[in-house]
Design a protein around this nucleic acid. Structure first.
Lengths: 261, 261
DNA sequence: TTGAAATATCACATATAGATGTTATCTTTT
DNA sequence: AAAAGATAACATCTATATGTGATATTTCAA
């Protein structure tokens, strides 16, 4: 295991647990405490965690939470799982919309083998990821770049979307309360709404942590989506609530779908 | 000097001279012939050159020439020079269009200090380069991605451009013959033309090697540009030809402008 | 507040992977 | 076949990563 891999792994541990001791990390990765200290210093330098006496804890200010570098890491395993499953909903030859979220972005990696394929996105991560994949028709949505979301937004984006039509769209939102999705940014909301309009089938991908939270702007009701994909970790209460409202919910297990409500 | 730097440097030499001997490279970089061999093997593996007995020569099939990985490397110093000068034509607060070319792309690095600034581009290299620069309002033009040009093209791109207006545009073309610019790709031509329409001042940046060559599609007459920027290496004959036709030509020296025709 | 225990840091020693050079041997060119 | 060049195998060198033990700092309880 190389240093960089170990550091990534440390972040993964932190993302899960929120906090970890030097002792524990040292044992877990089979390296000295000194090495763990050096890793933590490095990661702290990069602004990814905060060292505390005895270990480290994850940065978690509100400002930090909405930073995409943070968001792209949290719940990585759940996101990968959702992404992997979502990719099975796509057939070769289709066109797919992917929004600016890191959750939807996780699909990109799994789409590389489904060719030919058209991918439409305003997500810079996805663009970088898929540019140069042979057999991949990559359509970028322009717009002004937002560092916070690592994507493109605005009238230009919206107009470009209006002239396009896709088979499937994969979106995410930062919060799900009751049977509606919410997002903290008006501009992002605009684009997501247009994406839904421009696609035949629509799926909302949200990790279980998003349930029961709210955000400033109403995005849309969940009934707008063909299905909501989330991790099996989601509480039965939330699952039932959606089921009662007639919203299709797919709880994705590590191996397969758990339940089709 | 690190291995990767040396390999890059070897490519630079090759780009200039077209061919180089192992002996020569070994001496020039102060390493053994064995090391040069290893470098060349590596670069050959990456498809960037062809080994021949005694040295290496550059890959130079027509297909390869129009590959952006190749284009982004040739005449680097001249391009940097043009880019650096071009940046002086931009004032803080303005909006700037940069096209898909690597020549125009070279401006990006020099624009980072001119803030605030709006940059409009379909060049993925520039987007990657400028995303995250604070004080920079980066507007990407969408469109379908072309690996060959590492940029975005098509109706979407064109439409986005139509709704935008910039103070300055920096373009390049693959050939200049007489007093007209040419390009090998129809789709690219479309976008460049719209860029010119969407900008107040327009500059064409071309390294001296582009003069006297031609390409499939007529792009536009040079009189459409406020000035043509090129290296001082350009022949007097070509310079005179432009001057006679009333086209503004700026020959950029290593230190300053040589001549203002 | 103070001192013992826990933890962190520092400076140096060691280990390791990658890069390079050398020489001998094989291959190509003429 | 001789000369030039390429390759292979091994030795050496170097930067980076890691570990160790000494020293400093922090924590917490008395």
């Amino acid at each position: 295991m190389k240093p960089d891999d170990r550091r990534q792994a440390i972040m993964d541990v932190l993302m899960e647990a929120g906090t970890a001791s030097v002792e524990e990390l040292s044992f877990r990765f089979g390296v000295s405490k000194m090495t763990v200290h050096r890793d933590l210093d490095d990661l702290e330098q990069a602004g990814l965690l905060r060292k505390v006496h005895g270990g480290a804890s994850i940065q978690s200010s509100p400002q930090f939470e909405s930073d995409f570098r943070y968001r792209e890491k949290i719940a990585t395993s759940e996101k990968r799982r959702l992404g992997e499953y979502a990719a099975t909903l796509v057939e070769p030859g289709q066109s797919v919309i992917i929004d600016d979220s890191s959750t939807a972005g996780a699909i990109a990696g799994f789409l590389k083998d489904i060719r030919p394929l058209t991918v439409i996105t305003n997500n810079l991560g996805v663009i970088t990821d898929l540019s140069g994949v042979p057999g991949m028709n990559l359509i970028a949505l322009g717009g002004h770049y937002s560092k916070r979301f690592n994507g493109f937004f605005g009238v230009v984006t919206e107009e470009a979307l209006r002239s396009l039509r896709a088979d499937v769209a994969f979106l995410s939102s930062s919060a799900v309360e009751g049977t509606a999705a919410f997002h903290q940014d008006q501009e992002v909301v605009q684009i997501k709404r247009q994406m839904v309009k421009s696609a035949n089938r629509k799926y909302l991908l949200v990790d279980h942590g998003k349930f029961g939270r709210s955000a400033l702007h109403f995005l849309m009701g969940l009934e707008a989506f063909d299905a909501v994909l989330t991790g099996s970790e989601v509480s039965d209460g939330h699952a039932r609530e959606l089921g009662d409202a007639g919203v299709g919910l797919l709880r994705i297990d590590n191996q397969k779908i758990m339940e089709k409500a």
